[in-house]
């Protein structure tokens, strides 16, 4: 504690009387059960109402155990208050959000990976100019996946052609649902050559209007493997 008293302690008669009364009251007050976890935390974070705060005040005037515990809690929780505390909290938040981004990349399932690639293609700047020719295989600015290759082209009628393929031939016959905001399409992965399965999706300009840019795009599994005979 840095504060140093510069003048002597003055106790006015009125204060003395008030304190004497208060000490008598405290001494006579019955001891309630110990403070609850909510009381400890709420008091320290300032989330209790005044009545609840007073209840805790009264309790710590008679209970040394709770007083010691709550003081320790408050003294340590000071680390997260004032400007230094806010900075500390900002750092933790930044760290958590970075971890989340890293985790998102690592944790993508194979369907999530496909959705990410399609979304990347649909968000491609070429698309806006209507002269799209973008592929996850050929252009390096789309993330290359071990599982999937996606290709987006435009035909003579002005429709976009999305081609999806995978070297995992076990996926033959797998049915997927591509889902955007107001649009969805079911596709089946068929064998396109001895080493690849794939599907072609025709997207009309109307389809694209139902998929606003930046909208979440997901791929759902309807059925894995070929349909039962």
């Amino acid at each position: 504690m840095t504060h140093k008293r510069s003048r002597p302690i003055q106790i006015s008669p009125q204060k003395a009387q008030e304190l004497s009364k208060h000490f008598r009251m405290v001494t006579q007050a019955p001891m309630s059960a110990h403070l609850s976890e909510d009381q400890f935390i709420g008091y320290v974070t300032g989330d209790l109402n005044e009545e609840e705060m007073l209840e805790v005040d009264r309790h710590i005037e008679v209970c040394e155990d709770c007083g010691t515990q709550i003081e320790h809690l408050a003294a340590n929780a000071m680390a997260w208050s004032a400007s230094e505390g806010k900075r500390r909290i900002q750092e933790l938040r930044k760290q958590a959000l970075n971890n989340l981004k890293k985790q998102e990349v690592l944790d993508l399932s194979f369907l999530g990976e496909l959705a990410l690639q399609i979304r990347s293609l649909l968000l491609g700047t070429n698309l806006a100019h209507g002269t799209v020719q973008a592929a996850t295989e050929e252009k390096k600015y789309f993330r290359q996946s071990e599982q999937w290759s996606c290709y987006l082209d435009i035909d003579k009628r002005g429709n976009y052609i999305l081609r999806i393929s995978s070297h995992d031939v076990n996926l033959e016959g797998t049915q997927l649902r591509l889902v955007s905001k107001n649009w969805q399409r079911e596709i089946t992965l068929n064998r396109v050559d001895p080493n690849q399965v794939g599907a072609k999706v025709v997207l009309s300009p109307e389809d694209l209007t139902k998929m606003p840019q930046g909208q979440d795009f997901s791929v759902e599994l309807i059925r894995q493997g070929p349909a039962p005979e």
Binding site: V26, Y43, T45, G46, A77, S81, A82
Partner: peptide, 16 residues
Amino acid sequence: GISPGLARIRVHRAIE
């Protein structure tokens, strides 16, 4: 140079 919560706790602990 402490938090208001800690000041409040210490006042009541002083009473105790």
